[in-house]
Amino acid sequence: MKKFLVPALIGAAFAMPAGAAAQQLPSTAIGVVDINQIQTTCTACVTARQQLQTQQQQLVQLRQSLQTPLTTEENAIQAEAQRLGDAARTNQALQQRVTTLQQNAANANRQLAQQEQIVQRNAAYVLQQINTQLSPAIDAVMARRGATVVMDASQLLKHNPAIDITADVLADLNARLTTIATVAPAPQQQPAQQQQPQGR
C-alpha cells in the first residue's frame, strides 16, 4: 500500500479548491500625514503649548530666584575667607556659613528637580492626550479617503502632495480634541508591601 501514498498526495494537492490558494493582496493606497505639524498646530495643541511655555518660563524664574541668594552668599564667604587668610579654616562662624550654604544649595537643587519633573510630566501628559485622539482621527480619514497605509511625512524623503492627508487629519482632530489639560495627575504611589506572617 505504501507505493500508492505519494501519488495519492499529489492527486489530493491538485484536487484542492481554488479558494484555498493564497489570496491576492488588495491594491495599496498610501496616505501621508505630517504628525509633527498636527501635534504643534491643532487648535487645542497651540493653546497647550503656550501654557507649557509659561510653565517653562516659571521654571527659569524659579532657578534664578534660588540661585541668586546662593551666589551672593558664596561670594561673601569667599571674600571673608580671603580676608581671614589661614585663620579661615578654624573660624567656626565662617565654617557654619559654609555648612548652611551647602544645605541651602542641596534644598534648592531638590526643589528645582521636583519642579522640572512636574513640567516634564505635564508635557508628556499633553502629548499623550494628543496621540490618544490622533489615532482615531487618522483611522477616520483613512476610511473616508480609502487609504490602506498611512506613513509619517518625517520618514519619507519625498512624496506627491496628492497623497498628503495632513489637512484632513488636522480638521478631524480639531473636532475631536477641543481642550487639553496641561497639568498631569499626580503620580500614583506604590502601595506598601504587606508583611507576610511568619510561620511558626
Rank of each mutant, 00 (worst) to 15 (best):
T40G: 03
E80R: 15
L127M: 09
Q95D: 02
A175L: 15
I118H: 03
Q82P: 09
L66A: 12
R83T: 07
T90C: 09
L101M: 03
Q53I: 07
L94F: 00
V98T: 03
K158T: 08
N160Y: 05
D164E: 08
P136T: 05
S135E: 12
A79K: 02
T54D: 06
N131V: 06
T148I: 09
G85C: 04
Q115D: 05
L70W: 02
T40M: 07
R49D: 13
N104F: 04
Q58Y: 03
L62G: 08
V150P: 01
D152C: 07
Q92A: 13
Q55F: 05
A113E: 00
Q102N: 14
L134M: 09
E73K: 11
P161T: 05
A44M: 02
D152H: 06
L157C: 01
E80D: 14
V119F: 04
R110P: 01
I138S: 01
E80F: 11
Q96I: 05
T71H: 05
L101P: 03
T148N: 13
R121M: 09
T43M: 01
N122L: 07
Y125A: 04
A93M: 10
N107P: 02
N104C: 00
A140D: 15
D86C: 00
C42L: 15
P69T: 02
A123L: 08
P161C: 10
S65I: 04
E80C: 13
L157G: 03
Q78C: 01
Q64K: 15
T90L: 14
L157K: 02
V150I: 07
T166F: 06
T68H: 05
A137Q: 00
Q78W: 03
A137P: 01
V169L: 10
L66T: 02
A108S: 08
A167G: 04
V141K: 10
Q111M: 05
L59C: 05
S65R: 11
Q57E: 14
K158H: 03
